[in-house]
Amino acid sequence: MTTMPADAPVTPSPRKAALRAAALDRRDALEIDDRLEWDSEIAARVLALPVWESRGPVSAYWPMRSEADPRPILEALHDRGLPLCLPAIVDKHMIFRRWAPYEPIVPGGFGTLVPAPAEPEAKPAILIVPLAAFDRRGYRIGYGKGYYDRALAELGPTVSIGIGYGAQEIEAVPDEPHDRRLDWIVTERETIRCG
């Protein structure tokens, strides 16, 4: 599998852009009450995965727009004693900074919130990632910048878990050589072991 340099631009794929837009439209159309209920179901499924023997840091993301909300997962993992971190983009590169529930977060660009720049960096052993669209093979479409694909390539052996809603599933992501397949995809409906 080809690894992209951290600052390599991702060439936009018109096919992926169309699939992304359609999947985001479906996600945005979901009722908020349903999404709140489904977030709880997703959290229960993720917390039941057989991956938590790792004591290394777990990274998730701060949700934006209508993304599945990983914060209940993070709070439960924090209660279990696992160290947490959140991603931040620095000089077009995704890094991870230590964070715990209720600690301060600051605007991080792209509409995200991130730990303060003074927080120490961490190397996650488990990465919970957002999905714009996904397929059952474990390929995802994100927002088109390639940050997660590069991060997964750079981190080396890492358990990767994509979370989203069943409405975001598509038949096949047009995967490219730099795309990284996820280990798991979890929706409100099911847990999919990929690869």
Rank of each mutant, 00 (worst) to 15 (best):
T3Q: 15
T3N: 12
D7F: 13
P9A: 02
P12Y: 01
P12D: 11
S13Y: 03
P14S: 05
P14H: 01
R15K: 03
A17K: 06
A18V: 10
L19A: 08
L24C: 12
D28P: 00
L30W: 10
E31S: 15
I32C: 15
I32T: 15
D33M: 09
E37A: 15
W38H: 06
D39N: 14
S40N: 11
S40T: 12
E41W: 14
E41D: 07
I42P: 00
I42E: 13
A43R: 00
A44K: 12
L47K: 12
V51T: 08
W52M: 10
S54D: 13
S59Y: 03
A60R: 00
M64V: 11
M64K: 09
S66M: 14
S66Y: 11
S66K: 00
A68L: 06
R71W: 08
R71P: 07
P72N: 02
I73R: 03
L74Q: 04
L74Y: 00
A76G: 03
A76M: 07
H78I: 12
D79Q: 13
G81V: 03
C85P: 04
C85L: 14
V90W: 13
K92R: 11
K92E: 09
H93T: 14
F96I: 01
F96M: 02
R97V: 05
R98T: 04
P101W: 02
E103P: 05
E103H: 07
P104E: 10
P107V: 08
P107E: 12
G109D: 12
F110H: 06
G111N: 04
L113F: 14
L113I: 09
A116V: 12
P117G: 07
E119Q: 08
E119P: 08
A122C: 09
A122K: 00
P124R: 03
A125M: 11
L127F: 07
I128S: 04
P130R: 00
L131D: 02
A132Q: 08
A133H: 07
F134K: 05
I141M: 11
G142S: 08
Y143D: 05
Y143N: 02
Y143W: 15
K145I: 02
Y147I: 06
Y147M: 05
D149F: 15
D149Y: 14
R150G: 06
R150N: 05
A151D: 05
A153R: 02
G156W: 15
T158F: 04
V159S: 04
I161P: 01
I161C: 13
A167S: 13
Q168V: 15
Q168E: 15
I170G: 05
V173S: 01
P177E: 07
P177N: 10
H178Q: 06
R180Y: 05
R180D: 01
R181Y: 04
D183C: 06
D183P: 05
D183S: 07
T187A: 08
R189C: 05
E190P: 00
T191F: 06
C194A: 07
G195N: 07
